[in-house]
Amino acid sequence: MFLAVALAALIIEALFGYPQALVRRIGHPVMWIGALIAWADRHWNRASDSFTLRRLWGAALVLLLIMAAASIGLGLTAAARLALPEPFATGVLGLLASSLLAQRSLGQHVSAVASALEKEGLVGGRRAVSMIVGRDPESLDEAGVARAAIESLAENFSDGVVAPLFWLAIGSLPGMLIYKATNTADSMIGHLSERHRAFGWAAARLDDLINLPASRLSALWLALAAIAIPRASARDAISAVWRDAHKHRSPNAGWPEAAMAGALRLRLAGPRVYHGEIVEDAWMGEGRADAKASDIRRALRLYRAACAVQALVVVAALVAVISIWR
Protein backbone atom coordinates (compact mmCIF):
# COMPACT_ATOMS: atom_id res chain seq x y z
CA MET A 1 0.00 0.00 0.00
CA PHE A 2 3.00 2.32 0.26
CA LEU A 3 3.00 2.81 -3.50
CA ALA A 4 -0.72 3.58 -3.51
CA VAL A 5 -0.17 6.27 -0.88
CA ALA A 6 2.75 7.64 -2.92
CA LEU A 7 0.62 7.86 -6.07
CA ALA A 8 -2.23 9.54 -4.19
CA ALA A 9 0.19 12.07 -2.70
CA LEU A 10 1.65 12.87 -6.12
CA ILE A 11 -1.75 13.45 -7.68
CA ILE A 12 -3.11 15.56 -4.81
CA GLU A 13 0.01 17.74 -4.59
CA ALA A 14 0.21 18.24 -8.36
CA LEU A 15 -3.43 19.36 -8.47
CA PHE A 16 -3.70 21.46 -5.32
CA GLY A 17 -0.32 21.94 -3.64
CA TYR A 18 -0.36 23.12 -0.03
CA PRO A 19 -2.93 25.93 0.26
CA GLN A 20 -1.59 29.30 1.40
CA ALA A 21 -4.66 29.65 3.61
CA LEU A 22 -3.41 26.69 5.63
CA VAL A 23 0.08 28.20 5.82
CA ARG A 24 -1.37 31.39 7.26
CA ARG A 25 -3.67 29.57 9.68
CA ILE A 26 -1.61 26.64 10.98
CA GLY A 27 1.76 26.85 9.21
CA HIS A 28 3.41 23.99 7.32
CA PRO A 29 4.88 20.70 8.63
CA VAL A 30 8.39 21.82 7.65
CA MET A 31 7.84 25.02 9.66
CA TRP A 32 6.92 22.92 12.71
CA ILE A 33 10.02 20.78 12.28
CA GLY A 34 12.10 23.93 11.81
CA ALA A 35 10.75 25.42 15.03
CA LEU A 36 11.97 22.37 16.99
CA ILE A 37 15.39 22.52 15.33
CA ALA A 38 15.69 26.25 16.03
CA TRP A 39 14.80 25.67 19.70
CA ALA A 40 17.46 22.96 20.01
CA ASP A 41 20.01 25.17 18.26
CA ARG A 42 19.40 27.94 20.79
CA HIS A 43 19.49 25.73 23.87
CA TRP A 44 21.81 22.82 22.98
CA ASN A 45 24.41 24.44 20.72
CA ARG A 46 26.36 26.37 23.35
CA ALA A 47 29.58 28.14 22.39
CA SER A 48 31.01 27.34 25.83
CA ASP A 49 30.85 23.58 25.16
CA SER A 50 33.66 21.63 23.53
CA PHE A 51 33.61 20.68 19.86
CA THR A 52 32.99 17.02 20.75
CA LEU A 53 30.13 17.83 23.14
CA ARG A 54 28.44 20.08 20.57
CA ARG A 55 28.73 17.29 18.01
CA LEU A 56 27.10 14.89 20.47
CA TRP A 57 24.28 17.35 21.14
CA GLY A 58 23.76 17.64 17.35
CA ALA A 59 23.60 13.85 17.04
CA ALA A 60 21.09 13.76 19.91
CA LEU A 61 18.92 16.26 18.03
CA VAL A 62 18.98 14.11 14.89
CA LEU A 63 18.02 11.04 16.95
CA LEU A 64 15.17 13.00 18.56
CA LEU A 65 13.92 14.12 15.15
CA ILE A 66 13.99 10.56 13.80
CA MET A 67 12.12 9.18 16.82
CA ALA A 68 9.52 11.96 16.74
CA ALA A 69 8.99 11.65 12.97
CA ALA A 70 8.68 7.86 13.13
CA SER A 71 6.24 8.02 16.05
CA ILE A 72 4.03 10.63 14.40
CA GLY A 73 4.10 8.79 11.07
CA LEU A 74 3.25 5.43 12.66
CA GLY A 75 0.51 6.99 14.78
CA LEU A 76 -1.16 8.73 11.83
CA THR A 77 -0.91 5.60 9.69
CA ALA A 78 -2.40 3.39 12.39
CA ALA A 79 -5.22 5.85 13.07
CA ALA A 80 -6.13 6.10 9.38
CA ARG A 81 -6.07 2.33 8.88
CA LEU A 82 -8.15 1.66 11.98
CA ALA A 83 -10.70 4.42 11.45
CA LEU A 84 -11.25 4.21 7.71
CA PRO A 85 -11.81 1.46 5.14
CA GLU A 86 -9.73 1.25 2.00
CA PRO A 87 -9.38 3.20 -0.24
CA PHE A 88 -10.31 6.10 2.07
CA ALA A 89 -7.39 5.41 4.41
CA THR A 90 -4.99 5.50 1.47
CA GLY A 91 -6.53 8.77 0.30
CA VAL A 92 -6.18 10.40 3.73
CA LEU A 93 -2.58 9.25 4.08
CA GLY A 94 -1.90 10.51 0.55
CA LEU A 95 -3.39 13.86 1.49
CA LEU A 96 -1.15 14.09 4.56
CA ALA A 97 1.92 13.03 2.58
CA SER A 98 1.18 15.53 -0.19
CA SER A 99 2.06 18.35 2.22
CA LEU A 100 5.67 17.14 2.20
CA LEU A 101 6.09 17.16 -1.59
CA ALA A 102 7.12 20.28 -3.52
CA GLN A 103 6.27 19.58 -7.17
CA ARG A 104 3.81 22.43 -7.57
CA SER A 105 5.43 25.02 -5.29
CA LEU A 106 8.91 24.45 -6.72
CA GLY A 107 7.68 25.05 -10.23
CA GLN A 108 5.82 28.18 -9.12
CA HIS A 109 8.84 29.68 -7.35
CA VAL A 110 11.18 29.07 -10.28
CA SER A 111 8.61 30.31 -12.78
CA ALA A 112 8.38 33.52 -10.73
CA VAL A 113 12.07 34.17 -11.40
CA ALA A 114 11.55 33.85 -15.15
CA SER A 115 8.55 36.17 -14.99
CA ALA A 116 10.45 38.73 -12.93
CA LEU A 117 13.35 38.73 -15.40
CA GLU A 118 10.99 39.13 -18.33
CA LYS A 119 8.87 41.90 -16.81
CA GLU A 120 11.18 43.75 -14.40
CA GLY A 121 14.66 42.98 -15.66
CA LEU A 122 17.68 42.27 -13.50
CA VAL A 123 16.36 44.00 -10.35
CA GLY A 124 13.21 41.91 -10.36
CA GLY A 125 15.11 38.75 -11.20
CA ARG A 126 17.51 39.26 -8.29
CA ARG A 127 14.63 39.83 -5.90
CA ALA A 128 12.76 36.71 -7.06
CA VAL A 129 15.80 34.43 -7.06
CA SER A 130 16.77 35.54 -3.54
CA MET A 131 13.64 33.71 -2.36
CA ILE A 132 14.96 30.32 -3.46
CA VAL A 133 18.78 30.44 -3.27
CA GLY A 134 21.29 31.33 -0.57
CA ARG A 135 23.89 33.09 -2.71
CA ASP A 136 24.29 36.86 -2.78
CA PRO A 137 21.76 38.14 -5.35
CA GLU A 138 23.63 41.44 -5.86
CA SER A 139 26.59 39.48 -7.24
CA LEU A 140 24.47 38.02 -10.06
CA ASP A 141 24.04 39.35 -13.57
CA GLU A 142 21.09 38.24 -15.71
CA ALA A 143 22.82 34.99 -16.71
CA GLY A 144 23.72 34.36 -13.07
CA VAL A 145 20.12 34.83 -11.97
CA ALA A 146 18.88 32.42 -14.66
CA ARG A 147 21.53 29.81 -13.82
CA ALA A 148 20.77 30.11 -10.09
CA ALA A 149 17.07 29.47 -10.75
CA ILE A 150 17.81 26.45 -12.95
CA GLU A 151 20.32 25.03 -10.46
CA SER A 152 17.79 25.44 -7.65
CA LEU A 153 15.17 23.70 -9.78
CA ALA A 154 17.48 20.76 -10.42
CA GLU A 155 18.69 20.35 -6.84
CA ASN A 156 15.26 20.79 -5.28
CA PHE A 157 13.75 18.36 -7.77
CA SER A 158 15.94 15.78 -6.03
CA ASP A 159 15.55 17.05 -2.44
CA GLY A 160 11.96 18.25 -2.54
CA VAL A 161 10.26 15.89 -4.98
CA VAL A 162 12.16 12.67 -5.72
CA ALA A 163 13.65 12.01 -2.28
CA PRO A 164 10.49 12.44 -0.18
CA LEU A 165 8.52 10.35 -2.67
CA PHE A 166 11.22 7.66 -2.66
CA TRP A 167 11.13 7.37 1.13
CA LEU A 168 7.32 7.47 1.09
CA ALA A 169 7.29 4.53 -1.33
CA ILE A 170 9.89 2.67 0.75
CA GLY A 171 8.75 3.50 4.28
CA SER A 172 5.28 5.04 3.95
CA LEU A 173 4.51 8.15 6.00
CA PRO A 174 7.10 7.43 8.76
CA GLY A 175 9.88 7.12 6.16
CA MET A 176 8.84 10.34 4.47
CA LEU A 177 8.65 12.25 7.76
CA ILE A 178 12.08 11.00 8.82
CA TYR A 179 13.50 12.18 5.51
CA LYS A 180 11.91 15.65 5.75
CA ALA A 181 13.02 16.09 9.36
CA THR A 182 16.61 15.17 8.49
CA ASN A 183 16.65 17.28 5.33
CA THR A 184 15.25 20.30 7.19
CA ALA A 185 17.90 19.89 9.88
CA ASP A 186 20.62 19.81 7.22
CA SER A 187 19.29 22.97 5.57
CA MET A 188 19.21 24.81 8.91
CA ILE A 189 22.31 23.59 10.75
CA GLY A 190 24.22 21.38 8.29
CA HIS A 191 26.42 24.10 6.79
CA LEU A 192 30.07 24.62 7.72
CA SER A 193 29.72 27.90 9.59
CA GLU A 194 31.66 28.35 12.80
CA ARG A 195 28.49 27.95 14.85
CA HIS A 196 27.27 24.78 13.13
CA ARG A 197 30.46 22.97 12.12
CA ALA A 198 30.12 20.63 15.11
CA PHE A 199 26.41 20.83 15.98
CA GLY A 200 25.26 20.24 12.39
CA TRP A 201 27.73 17.46 11.58
CA ALA A 202 25.34 14.54 12.18
CA ALA A 203 22.49 16.18 10.26
CA ALA A 204 24.75 16.91 7.27
CA ARG A 205 26.24 13.41 7.14
CA LEU A 206 22.87 11.66 7.45
CA ASP A 207 21.33 13.94 4.82
CA ASP A 208 24.15 13.06 2.41
CA LEU A 209 23.41 9.38 2.96
CA ILE A 210 19.64 9.41 2.63
CA ASN A 211 19.77 11.58 -0.51
CA LEU A 212 22.05 9.19 -2.40
CA PRO A 213 19.24 7.15 -4.04
CA ALA A 214 17.11 10.17 -5.00
CA SER A 215 19.97 12.17 -6.50
CA ARG A 216 20.75 9.31 -8.89
CA LEU A 217 17.07 8.75 -9.68
CA SER A 218 16.49 12.45 -10.32
CA ALA A 219 19.31 12.47 -12.88
CA LEU A 220 17.75 9.43 -14.55
CA TRP A 221 14.27 11.00 -14.63
CA LEU A 222 15.70 14.20 -16.17
CA ALA A 223 17.62 12.24 -18.81
CA LEU A 224 14.53 10.22 -19.73
CA ALA A 225 12.39 13.36 -19.79
CA ALA A 226 14.82 15.00 -22.22
CA ILE A 227 13.75 12.46 -24.86
CA ALA A 228 10.33 14.10 -25.00
CA ILE A 229 11.44 17.75 -24.88
CA PRO A 230 12.34 19.57 -28.12
CA ARG A 231 15.97 20.76 -28.28
CA ALA A 232 16.85 18.78 -25.14
CA SER A 233 19.38 15.95 -25.22
CA ALA A 234 19.18 12.77 -23.17
CA ARG A 235 22.63 11.75 -24.46
CA ASP A 236 24.22 15.00 -23.31
CA ALA A 237 22.46 14.70 -19.96
CA ILE A 238 23.99 11.27 -19.38
CA SER A 239 27.41 12.43 -20.60
CA ALA A 240 27.38 15.43 -18.26
CA VAL A 241 26.44 13.26 -15.28
CA TRP A 242 29.18 10.76 -16.08
CA ARG A 243 31.79 13.50 -16.58
CA ASP A 244 30.85 16.19 -14.05
CA ALA A 245 28.58 14.95 -11.22
CA HIS A 246 31.48 13.75 -9.06
CA LYS A 247 33.21 17.15 -9.34
CA HIS A 248 30.50 18.91 -7.32
CA ARG A 249 31.31 19.72 -3.68
CA SER A 250 28.08 17.93 -2.72
CA PRO A 251 27.97 14.14 -3.17
CA ASN A 252 24.39 14.46 -4.40
CA ALA A 253 23.64 17.89 -5.90
CA GLY A 254 25.96 17.32 -8.85
CA TRP A 255 23.79 14.54 -10.26
CA PRO A 256 20.58 16.49 -11.02
CA GLU A 257 22.52 19.69 -11.82
CA ALA A 258 24.76 17.91 -14.32
CA ALA A 259 21.76 16.13 -15.87
CA MET A 260 19.88 19.41 -16.22
CA ALA A 261 22.92 21.19 -17.65
CA GLY A 262 23.61 18.47 -20.20
CA ALA A 263 20.00 18.07 -21.25
CA LEU A 264 19.65 21.83 -21.90
CA ARG A 265 23.22 22.22 -23.24
CA LEU A 266 24.06 24.79 -20.56
CA ARG A 267 26.83 25.26 -18.01
CA LEU A 268 25.61 25.37 -14.42
CA ALA A 269 27.21 25.75 -10.98
CA GLY A 270 30.77 27.11 -11.27
CA PRO A 271 32.15 29.88 -9.00
CA ARG A 272 29.50 31.52 -6.83
CA VAL A 273 29.35 34.10 -4.04
CA TYR A 274 27.88 33.23 -0.64
CA HIS A 275 27.87 35.82 2.15
CA GLY A 276 30.60 37.81 0.44
CA GLU A 277 32.90 34.83 -0.14
CA ILE A 278 33.60 33.19 -3.50
CA VAL A 279 32.99 29.43 -3.58
CA GLU A 280 35.01 27.81 -6.37
CA ASP A 281 32.61 25.11 -7.54
CA ALA A 282 33.24 23.09 -10.68
CA TRP A 283 31.12 23.69 -13.76
CA MET A 284 28.39 21.18 -14.63
CA GLY A 285 27.94 20.72 -18.37
CA GLU A 286 29.86 22.03 -21.37
CA GLY A 287 27.24 24.28 -22.97
CA ARG A 288 26.82 28.04 -22.80
CA ALA A 289 26.84 29.89 -19.49
CA ASP A 290 24.82 32.92 -20.70
CA ALA A 291 21.45 31.57 -19.60
CA LYS A 292 18.28 33.65 -20.03
CA ALA A 293 14.69 33.69 -18.83
CA SER A 294 13.79 31.53 -21.83
CA ASP A 295 16.23 28.89 -20.54
CA ILE A 296 14.41 28.88 -17.19
CA ARG A 297 11.22 28.16 -19.14
CA ARG A 298 12.97 25.30 -20.95
CA ALA A 299 14.20 23.93 -17.63
CA LEU A 300 10.66 24.06 -16.24
CA ARG A 301 9.36 22.06 -19.21
CA LEU A 302 12.06 19.47 -18.60
CA TYR A 303 11.25 19.44 -14.88
CA ARG A 304 7.55 18.86 -15.47
CA ALA A 305 8.32 16.06 -17.91
CA ALA A 306 10.64 14.49 -15.32
CA CYS A 307 7.83 14.68 -12.73
CA ALA A 308 5.60 12.87 -15.25
CA VAL A 309 8.28 10.20 -15.76
CA GLN A 310 8.44 9.65 -12.02
CA ALA A 311 4.65 9.38 -11.76
CA LEU A 312 4.60 6.80 -14.57
CA VAL A 313 7.26 4.76 -12.77
CA VAL A 314 5.16 4.78 -9.58
CA VAL A 315 2.08 3.66 -11.56
CA ALA A 316 4.07 0.86 -13.25
CA ALA A 317 5.50 -0.30 -9.91
CA LEU A 318 2.04 -0.26 -8.30
CA VAL A 319 0.54 -2.27 -11.16
CA ALA A 320 3.42 -4.77 -10.94
CA VAL A 321 2.98 -5.22 -7.18
CA ILE A 322 -0.80 -5.67 -7.50
CA SER A 323 -0.26 -8.25 -10.27
CA ILE A 324 2.21 -10.20 -8.14
CA TRP A 325 -0.08 -10.20 -5.09
CA ARG A 326 -3.00 -11.44 -7.15
Rank of each mutant, 00 (worst) to 15 (best):
A226I: 01
G121A: 10
A143H: 12
V314P: 03
W221Q: 00
A299I: 09
S218Q: 07
P230Q: 14
L63T: 13
F88M: 11
V123N: 15
M284T: 15
R127F: 02
F16E: 14
Y18V: 01
L106W: 02
I296M: 12
I210K: 06
L63F: 06
L56G: 02
A261L: 08
A70Q: 09
L140W: 06
L206W: 11
S71Y: 10
N45S: 07
I26V: 09
R231E: 15
G107Q: 00
A293S: 04
D186R: 13
E118C: 00
G125D: 04
F157L: 07
L95K: 01
I189K: 15
I150K: 15
D208Y: 05
A149S: 03
V279T: 09
A47P: 01
R272H: 09
A289L: 06
A225I: 01
D281R: 06
A102P: 06
A8T: 06
R46C: 02
S130N: 05
A308K: 00
L173E: 12
T182K: 05
M284P: 14
A258V: 13
S152E: 06
V23M: 00
R267P: 06
L222Q: 07
A185F: 11
D41W: 08
A38Q: 10
L300D: 11
A258Q: 15
A316H: 04
L122H: 14
P256Q: 13
S48V: 00
V319R: 10
G27K: 09
K247N: 10
A4D: 14
G144N: 02
L82I: 01
Q20N: 01
A228D: 05
L206D: 09
A185G: 13
R301V: 06
M131L: 02
D244P: 10
R231C: 14
F199V: 08
R55C: 05
G91E: 14
R195V: 02
A259H: 03
N45W: 07
S218T: 11
F16R: 15
L82D: 07
G175K: 12
L212A: 15
S99G: 05
R235Y: 02
R127T: 02
G285R: 10
V30S: 04
K247V: 05
L82H: 12
A203F: 12
E142K: 06
A68K: 01
A203S: 08
G75E: 00
F157V: 02
A282N: 04
